[in-house]
Computed example of a mutant assay.
Amino acid sequence: MFLPSLLLAIILFAFWPTENATSETVPLPPPVTMSDKRIAFSFDDAPRGAGAFLEPDERPKLLIEALQTAGIEQAVFFINPGRITAYDHDAADIAAYAKAGHVLANHTAKHSKLSSVTVATFLADVDAAEVWLKDKPNYRPWFRFPFLDEGRTNRTKRDAVRAGLKQRGLMNGYVTVDASDWYLEDMAISAAKAGKLMDWNALRDLFVESYVESAEFSDDLARRTLDRAPVQMILLHETDLAAMFVDDLAAALKRQGWTIVPADEAYRDPIANMEPDVDFADGTRTQMLAAERNIGNRWYKRNDQKVAKKLFAARVLRD
């Protein structure tokens, strides 16, 4: 054991830089830096209502526990207060998210779709949500468009709502990472109703894999578009699948070198204040910025429902 150690010491000494050594003769390694792959978590459509797999009040409790297990100290929940009634526990569940350290923001009261309603109707729905939200603990003046629909091809409508949000002091709560978890849940619900057997481990793996791939795709797209790595914002929904799998997703992202950061940090990133001027205002912030700059390959393939349906059938249902 002694001889190899001695030889190692001799080798290290022989190549150790002296006071007269220069960078030409002894190249120095690059400095060690932390990964610039940062990501924050968000959940739309709270309260979402009963799912197919968990009891109505079981989901928020499980989701809060999963976020704690995952080390996600501050996610943002985009709230639809119009879904809250006096006959459910939704208000208490949302208060529990805030009490656990997460923040609350505006998603309209009734989940209006901008391309389908007038500007006045849409902004009235925004205002109705603000009335409910503004005095709640951990409220943030952020707004997320339902369906990520910012007016689509109607620039006049898009610009009018952008101006309306600014007048109200609301910032657009951008998204960069999406893998259509709502569609995975829809397919799982349909399969359960049809009495089909599902491989739950395969469903978890498909859920996690799709979002990790989407994060990597958006990271690459952002670097190609902006020449830097902004904080990514992942879009999930307050679903049963999210409650069951978010801790697995967080662990997988960390294995891929991602650092999970608070929503507050994400919305301090300069990308949060960018307003892409595109022909079709619908989708993630990175997609629209890439379209504005004519960057190709900007659509994550698993958001195509045909692709997602085929993967679900093959892996979860084993059809």
Rank of each mutant, 00 (worst) to 15 (best):
Q232V: 05
D247T: 06
T108N: 06
R223K: 12
D227C: 04
M198I: 05
K37F: 07
R158E: 14
G173K: 04
M274V: 14
E265Q: 14
Y87W: 13
I79A: 04
L317D: 01
S115P: 12
K110A: 11
E19R: 10
V231H: 05
V278Q: 11
A124C: 09
R255M: 10
H237R: 10
A191P: 04
L104E: 03
A272P: 09
R152T: 15
F43G: 00
R168L: 10
R155Y: 10
L226S: 02
H89M: 12
K110L: 10
A242G: 14
A98N: 07
A109I: 06
P230E: 05
V261K: 02
T156E: 15
A21E: 04
A95M: 11
G101N: 01
M171L: 15
A91T: 10
S115M: 13
G195W: 07
L104D: 01
W299T: 13
A194K: 14
W182A: 15
T85H: 08
S35R: 06
E19C: 05
K166G: 08
P137C: 09
G296P: 00
V246S: 03
A70W: 04
T284H: 08
F53W: 12
G49F: 02
A243V: 01
F2T: 13
Q232K: 06
R228H: 09
I189K: 15
A95W: 04
V212T: 04
A105Q: 02
E209Y: 04
A290M: 07
L28D: 01
L7E: 11
D135V: 09
V208S: 01
A95C: 10
S42Y: 08
P27V: 00
D178P: 07
A281K: 12
L6E: 11
V316F: 00
R155T: 15
V126M: 08
F217I: 03
L28T: 05
H107D: 06
P29W: 00
N294P: 01
G296M: 04
T284A: 08
T18I: 06
G71N: 09
